Amino acid sequence: MSLLKLASLTCIALALGACQSAFQPKPLAFTPDASEQVKAGCKGDDCPLVNIETVHFAADPKLDALIEQRLLKMTVNSPDDKLAPSLNAYREQFLRTADTRNSMYLQAKVREQHDDLVIIELISYLDTGGAHGMPGRGFINWSRKDHKEVTLQDMLLPGQERAFWGAAKVAHNNWLINSHRSNDAEFVKTWPFQQTPNVALLKDSVLLKYDVYSIAPYSDGNVELSIPYSRLNGIIKPEWLPGRG
């Protein structure tokens, strides 16, 4: 190969690389916001408190508002609970009525950013002074292009919901094997596979996260199941496959 031809091919390769990099969106900038407040006038280790860690997206107010709304929904723990109008209002309400050793932790964090998506993980932990607190989990799959949340129905091709949960069942079987529970008939009977609303379109796989007491005892925490994208061909819409958007 002549030096001239080699130089030409090098230029083409560099140009293609420049084009590809141009189509890679920069991560959406965000600002962390963390605060912890103890009940007024209380001193000591058992004082009620509210700890909130969230993120703000100045360039996308709709995502900002959705994060706050979803965190607020995680504070509703009984049919009698009313949704507070804001996180600040919830903090004041909780501290005003909380008993000793009661606390609430709320967190929204950026789990991943890839392709068109921002994946937000939502975390809550309510401690009412018992043996252990109650954790909650959730996800937001946010499309930057469409400025909206991508739901499971948005992700799937028409008529493929059953196939999706079939792939999730395979992931659950793999989890049983890896956790050495597959031969424990009592465990399998007591903690059968279930669907979950917590689905995240990560870069390497689709992640399912389960609330405690759903498919395993409290001691297992929030179980995660991963479905490789290779198992979801013909199930998930092509635009949501990493690198295909």
Rank of each mutant, 00 (worst) to 15 (best):
M1P: 15
S2A: 03
A7C: 06
L9N: 02
L9E: 09
T10Y: 03
A13T: 15
A15T: 13
Q20I: 03
Q20M: 15
Q24H: 12
P25D: 05
P27A: 08
F30W: 15
V38P: 03
V38A: 05
A40Y: 08
C42K: 11
C42L: 02
L49F: 14
L49E: 11
V50N: 01
I52Y: 09
E53S: 13
H56R: 10
A59G: 11
L63G: 07
I67T: 05
L72F: 06
L72N: 05
D80S: 06
P85M: 04
L87V: 02
N88R: 08
Q93F: 06
L95M: 14
R96S: 15
T100Q: 10
T100A: 04
N102L: 13
Y105T: 10
R111A: 10
Q113S: 08
H114W: 10
D115Y: 03
L122Q: 06
D127I: 08
G129N: 13
G130F: 00
M134K: 13
G136D: 04
D146W: 06
Q153P: 00
D154F: 12
G159E: 09
Q160A: 15
G166S: 10
G166E: 14
A167T: 11
H172A: 02
N173G: 03
S179I: 01
R181S: 01
S182A: 13
F187R: 01
K189R: 14
T190W: 06
P197M: 01
P197R: 09
A200C: 01
L202A: 07
Y213E: 15
A216F: 05
G234Y: 06
G234V: 10
I235E: 08
I235K: 10
I236Q: 00
K237L: 03
E239T: 12
E239H: 11
G245E: 07
